[in-house]
């Protein structure tokens, strides 16, 4: 439940500035970055994801730590399943300006 999943920003959404496309173990989904203090995210940056939101921006080394931790906990597949399950960038869901 309190999974925090490391992901790498692939691109920022041009239309919806609060969404970033993120890669987690090859799965790419939109993640909401509205909780980040520093809004200047760029492709290549790493973030920690929890229930569809970026909790914080982290360094690459921390991201690798976090991945290793998830693997050691046997939660890496769960994490990817969670990210794969994010459905809010589906048709009709995220249209219009971001809240």
């Amino acid at each position: 439940m309190c999974l925090a999943i490391p992901g790498q920003v692939v691109e920022m959404d041009a239309v919806q500035p609060l969404l970033a496309k993120v890669d987690v173990g090859g799965v790419r989904r939109n993640v909401n970055v509205g909780l980040l203090e520093q809004s200047e995210l760029a492709p290549g940056d790493w973030i920690l994801i929890h229930v569809g939101f970026a909790l914080s921006k982290i360094g690459e080394e921390e991201a690798r730590d976090q991945l290793r931790m998830l693997r050691a906990m046997g939660e890496d597949e769960l994490a990817i399943e969670e990210v794969r399950g994010y459905a809010f960038d589906a048709e009709g869901a995220a249209h219009g300006a971001a809240g």
Binding site: N32, V51, G52, F53, Y86, A87, F88, A90, G92
Partner: peptide, 12 residues
Amino acid sequence: YSPLDALALAQQ
């Protein structure tokens, strides 16, 4: 997996 999924369902 996310509260945003629930909101998306409401829109759908």
